[in-house]
Write a protein that binds this DNA or RNA. Structure first.
Lengths: 346, 346
DNA sequence: GCGAAATACTGGAACGTTCCAAGGAACTCG
DNA sequence: CGAGTTCCTTGGAACGTTCCAGTATTTCGC
């Protein structure tokens, strides 16, 4: 019942263990006769090389460890698609682990990955403290995904949040909106960058007078609270840019309760282009991140380090794009002002 | 720059490698003095045991391999929560791999897991052929999740789909509905069982005359097509049980297009209780599967096998439950018939 | 037809742990 | 106080591979 080893195959095929090793690795310069014999015996007795033993002597596992903050976030599923595709092309495999957004369990998951001696580490939006990340990066190539950093010792790849926010604002401004409010993501990852991008874009379009940022979060409730704040006083905006899709959906719901129609009375843009946004029932205009590309880039950074091509850190920002769906439209005529009207008539 | 080994620690702490090994594993009967010395040196030079070497000699990895058909399905995220929690309690770690619903890449992912010598295998709704699964189950404890089987050599744990369907139908019947239609899941996993459960429950409530099954699928489009079929001819039902949440949402959308109000004109029940269903904007009554429990049970089955407690297969069905939200109500009075009215008045 | 080069194969030494048998020191008990 | 325990500690033998240095054997060029 014991698992057969390379020695069992060798004995049975009447060759040395070294030759079996060569055959299993597909090496050249092996006679066809013995190759067939070894392969035959291996299949017959159900031999499968022991990856642990191989890794031990080769001192590499061909494994990338991926530490995910949260499996529930469908965002990461697509990043992993990219990781797996790129890793497979170079003969690597990804093994995924998670710490459920708890620092302690994330640390033990990381520890397991390090003990396993994975050849590289991809940390996707971890809640880990930066010093733990830096410590890991000293032991093996490490890339931080979807968490902004300027740390000189660890590579990173993230979405270009300011540009994404700018895409949303620019699109709304070009539709003719001026009073564009932003429901922000509180202190969520990238929320600061999106907020900053919103403000900068508003200024660029000469709309600094209409800048309105209300506090929200990356949740349905955050969006709902944002709407409450926006409609509490003053002239309501004609367009709202929410920090992410979930907040946008919360906003959508709160707007419906207030009998405010979308997009007739107010346009709404989300961020992330999650599966939710695509649901016809929701049909949300949103900013898409190139998730698979982010995963592929993470692997590329790892491979560069492994090849020894590079020792200084790279911080890559991937360009987002706008996905136009049904929650955006031109502002109602009454709210458009003269200047915009004129411009549109040119 | 080379990673320190147990020998480096031993030399520096002036003890034998065996003692270092004992200290690192937290063994009893080690003098406090040497323990401190070893621990101190280990921390100082950054020693971390090599898991590969350990696994090689111990002939176990304390790793469970989890092969996922599809990371995009949030369903599995919660199953994995349960797996990780239960595994951690017994000193195991889960490593996750996926084949993106492609038989070929699922097979190589499985191969990687086997070469890694994981101690157990959890196959979550794989698209793999059954013979490959049986082959794997001969090499190590294997449990099949969310894929029904009666295979005597491999354990399985799944949701009790007929019971879930019955919960939905029974609830609708008790609300007073008689014409309850079912949009099925085509040949998706568990679709047959849900269909069968629907028919059986209808009979149990004396509603066999109103059984109406239309072909759909586990997608938004499937739900939309189902609605088209239902409203094509005859008297429309007062309640619809969709094969899953996605189909229910497609149905919701198609119903809105036809100006049919939910739940005033027709009640709608989904299946799976995905995050989508909970969104206030959708607020779908649905059947919940105990996902974390399914994961925990999978680990339990593995541990039983590893302890040698059991050699014959177990096929476990977990009980689902109904989550009542906003898409269900009593049928409009005009459509209720006398018999039910009488019964309700008792 | 001879030396060099290519081809085909081999045994032993790693890789970094854990396990085992054993041995010395210190304690316990009648 | 002597024999048996218990407490610490140790070196050597695995675990299952790959790598390296080498040894035959064959092929090749001139």
């Amino acid at each position: 019942m014991k698992r057969p080893t390379i020695l069992d195959v060798a004995a049975r095929a009447r060759v040395s263990k070294s030759l079996v090793s060569l055959v299993m690795r597909g090496a050249a310069h092996v006679s066809e006769e013995k190759r067939q014999r070894v392969l035959g015996v291996a299949a017959e007795i159900g031999y499968r090389p022991n990856g642990m033993a191989r890794s031990l002597v080769r001192r590499r596992t061909n494994l990338f460890g991926v530490l995910l903050s949260d499996l529930h976030n469908p965002y990461f599923a697509e990043v992993i698609d990219g990781i797996q595709a790129a890793a497979a092309l170079s003969g690597y495999h990804a093994i995924i682990s998670t710490g459920d957004r708890v620092v302690r369990s994330e640390a033990t998951a990381l520890e397991t990955l390090l003990e396993l001696r994975t050849d590289g580490l991809i940390l996707a939006s971890p809640v880990l403290e930066m010093h733990a990340i830096i410590a890991a990066s000293r032991e093996l190539p490490t890339v931080l995904v979807a968490r902004h950093t300027r740390e000189p010792s660890v590579d990173s790849v993230a979405n270009d949040d300011p540009t994404g926010a700018s895409l949303a604002v620019t699109y709304l401004a070009e539709l003719g909106h001026e009073r564009i409010a932003h429901i922000d993501g509180g202190n969520g990852a990238g929320a600061m960058e999106r907020r900053r991008g919103y403000v900068r874009a508003m200024k660029k379009h000469g709309l600094e007078a209409h800048v309105q940022v209300v506090t929200g979060s990356y949740t349905e409730d955050g969006g709902r609270q944002g709407i409450d704040a926006i409609y509490r006083d003053g002239v309501p905006p004609t367009a709202i840019f929410a920090a992410n899709d979930l907040a946008a959906i919360g906003a959508l719901d709160a707007l419906a309760e207030r009998q405010v129609r979308v997009p007739e009375d107010v346009s709404l843009v989300g961020y992330d282009n999650t599966a939710l946004a695509a649901i016809r029932h929701i049909n949300l205009t949103t900013v898409d991140q190139p998730r698979p590309d982010i995963g592929r880039m993470a692997v590329k950074l790892l491979l560069e380090r492994l090849a020894g091509d590079r020792s200084e850190a790279r911080h890559v920002l991937m360009a987002p794009s706008l996905v136009i769906r049904g929650t955006t439209a031109r502002p109602a005529r009454s709210t458009r002002n003269a200047r915009i009207s004129r411009r549109r008539e040119k």
